[in-house]
Design a protein around this nucleic acid. Sequence first.
DNA 1: AGTTGACATGGAAGGCGTTTCATAATTTAC
DNA 2: GTAAATTATGAAACGCCTTCCATGTCAACT
Lengths: 319, 319
Amino acid sequence: MANIKDIAKLAGVSVTTVSRVINGHPYVSTLKKEAVQRAMEMENYERNINAVHLSKGKTNLIGVVVPSIRRPYFGMVVEGIADEAIKDNYKLVLIQTNYEVEREMDALMMLKLKQIDALIICSKTSGWDVVEEYIQYGPIIILEDARGTKLSSIFIDHYQIFSNALAYLRSKGHHKIGYCLARRSSPNSARREAAYRDFYTNLQEDYDPNYIFYDCVHLEDGEWIMQRIVGMEDPPTALLVTSDQVAAGILTYCQENNIRVPEDLAIVGFDNQPIAKVLHITTFEIPIVEIGRKLFLKAIDGSHSHEEIPIHLIERLTV
Amino acid sequence: MANIKDIAKLAGVSVTTVSRVINGHPYVSTLKKEAVQRAMEMENYERNINAVHLSKGKTNLIGVVVPSIRRPYFGMVVEGIADEAIKDNYKLVLIQTNYEVEREMDALMMLKLKQIDALIICSKTSGWDVVEEYIQYGPIIILEDARGTKLSSIFIDHYQIFSNALAYLRSKGHHKIGYCLARRSSPNSARREAAYRDFYTNLQEDYDPNYIFYDCVHLEDGEWIMQRIVGMEDPPTALLVTSDQVAAGILTYCQENNIRVPEDLAIVGFDNQPIAKVLHITTFEIPIVEIGRKLFLKAIDGSHSHEEIPIHLIERLTV
DNA sequence: AGTTGACATGGAAGGCGTTTCATAATTTAC
DNA sequence: GTAAATTATGAAACGCCTTCCATGTCAACT
């Protein structure tokens, strides 16, 4: 394949001029410009993109860290990122971590080595200090409340929403409220737990720790959750489920086992995924795809900022 | 940041020797090797990965083309690819096409420019001839029957499966069988349509073209499909639905509208996604994640081959 | 007429690691 | 004891594009 030197020779100009034509710089006479274009066409020239990357120190690649791409929530975030990335001619490098710190380090290393121009972390496993170390190498945007750190973030106030949700269920007459979380160790989970504890503390009431379920991630998890609930002497009357997928699983189990929703058990989901709409699950609408778009925009904008995304309750038939 | 030259100077060796140490080549004395390692550690050296790419003409990046990453089917394929890619230290570049030919061309161009080492196409929009043009630049693997082309492929015999499914429904006493496809124009759809036509032709029976539904992709599509069926004078008694998502949407509609499944309407899904298990949908199990793994392996193996994936029916409660 | 500023163009430096080739020093082999 | 093989090492070529800097031309402005 021809390189820029060949083209320059063929067109009878300097390499610089060819580069200028390629990159649309001004100050090239029409005559030479056309000569270059003819030469490029003749030779079917394509620049060596890796040489461009080396020279520019930039790759038009954005890293995206997700724990698992098959989870609809992350699929939707990535879709949003990808939608926006296309417009700016960026491509996405997908890094699936399965919550392994090592994988996350891979991603950070890619930023350090300038293999990617920026990094979007949709779910973080390692500590803030570790991640902040890498901010010097390029923009890092995180889908989590990162106020107080050097990263930029788009986030949801999970404490507030959980509090609101609890108050909402209380107003509907529920006193025994349980909840389902994904990873126990995630910061989002911590905030939600705090909201829950504070809620009951303020009310000067106790809560049953058995009402708390961890590792609720997939549709199928609804089954074991409900089996545990069914086996309880004094089961909760309402459940805050931090994923519509899980909420759908729970609802399905109820329908099959003659547990009336919301009479016997009220369910509040999160995300407002398609399944919540189809199954009429009351849920908090999180504009996931839109959040993905914003994440990307922030990644290439480069300024340091934090943005809270407001979340609204969508009342349907499960409360 | 230090470069290889700095390290060489610091260690008192040549650049070549440093490179050899980095890449684990033999023929470096222990003495110099250690000197180099010390120097690298001292300077906190990291190679400029873009220079490596330029020099090697290889990036350890594999392109993955999907129409939309949020669709569970593609999420699962990509998960499989990513799982396997990690093991070989490859990263994935995600190209979301939305079935736009232009996006697909982007991906092919990346292969041509050696920005990616291989390309996996999970769903193709452009023609075979276009794609085959690019096989000269690197391995292209496609999730579709590509026998007779220069590409490698992992595929499912959709004609056969559709035929089997029709025979199965017939054996259960169904004569009025409809089906739901995604894109009408896709090759998979064409094969399924052929199977359907041949099935009725062999039986010397006619079929009602109204029983055929296109653009059935998402969970929500179940609703309009069922509304059309409900409005029919002579509705089908069984439906072959080429996505569990859509099958789930249809089933949900039936449950809410007192249409008995399978008595009034039998439903056969495809993919055996979690939702099919939870809702007890009879479906064809397609080992999607496993297929993703195989796609990746084939991508880096580089040999030209085709592999058919056998598919099995999982009988549950919707037939 | 002299000074500015806009337009044009090319040389050369800069970004950086890999690999081939030539050479030298040791071993091993017979 | 000598030929052959193995081990070690570095210079230089190679992969290729971008951009800074220097130089030059021509028109416009004072």
